[in-house]
């Protein structure tokens, strides 16, 4: 179903439908995360991926255009690039352990140590929260920095949008009206 949704995104021309489909894609992936035991991630994906980003994209559509123009160039080269990259990645997975195997390196090295230490050191029932806030606290700090920077960037890009638009209406020859 995820593949079908993704392919529909490729084919659809109406941008409104594309954005809605991307919301559907996010919700489906949240369901997948639940079946993969990652309930916290599913939470965040449903709220952020399906909620906030869809709203942001709809906002962008309201300020720009609604539909996609038809393509002129032939999609042979991108298709080739994608196929080669995909083949390389499949080749990379051949060395990976089987899905869900308990003796995979990812399961035997760091994970059990966290399970031993969390009840003693943190005493928070949710292991994801415990790791996020304490053992990997610097990640979260960095994440906050990234979000802050992105927020500043968005504000800088968007500030004066209404003002410039008004100037354009008053004087169409102004910069931004031409070119």
């Amino acid at each position: 179903m995820l593949v079908i949704t993704a392919l529909a995104v490729v084919r659809t021309r109406s941008l409104f439908a594309v954005v809605t489909l991307s919301g559907v894609f996010s919700l489906l992936s949240a369901l997948l995360f639940i079946t993969l035991d990652a309930v916290d991630v599913a939470f965040t994906e449903a709220a952020v991926g399906a909620g906030i980003s869809t709203v942001l994209m709809l906002g962008t559509l309201a300020l720009t255009s609604r539909s996609e123009r038809s393509e002129k160039k032939t999609p042979i080269v991108p298709l080739l690039v994608v196929l080669v990259t995909g083949a390389a990645m499949v080749y990379g997975t051949l060395d990976m352990p089987n899905f869900g195997s308990p003796d995979a390196p990812a399961q035997t090295h760091v994970g059990p140590e966290y399970f031993e230490r969390i009840p003693k050191e943190i005493d928070v029932p949710n292991a994801v929260t415990a790791i996020l806030a304490s053992y990997r606290g610097y990640d979260t700090l960095g994440e906050t920095a990234v979000v802050f920077t992105a927020g500043i960037g968005v504000l800088m890009l968007m500030s004066g949008l209404g003002r410039r638009r008004k100037e354009d209406e008053d004087d169409p020859d102004q910069e931004g009206g031409s070119a």
Binding site: M57, V128, L132, D139, V146, V154
Partner: peptide
């Protein structure tokens, strides 16, 4: 229990992802 470490990393990545998306849309 499933390994919680990837969950933590991906939680961070989702939030960073929405930040980049919003910057791109702007």
């Amino acid at each position: 229990y499933s390994n919680p470490l990837p969950h933590v990393l991906i939680l961070t990545a989702i939030v960073v992802g929405i930040a980049t998306t919003s910057l791109g849309l702007a």
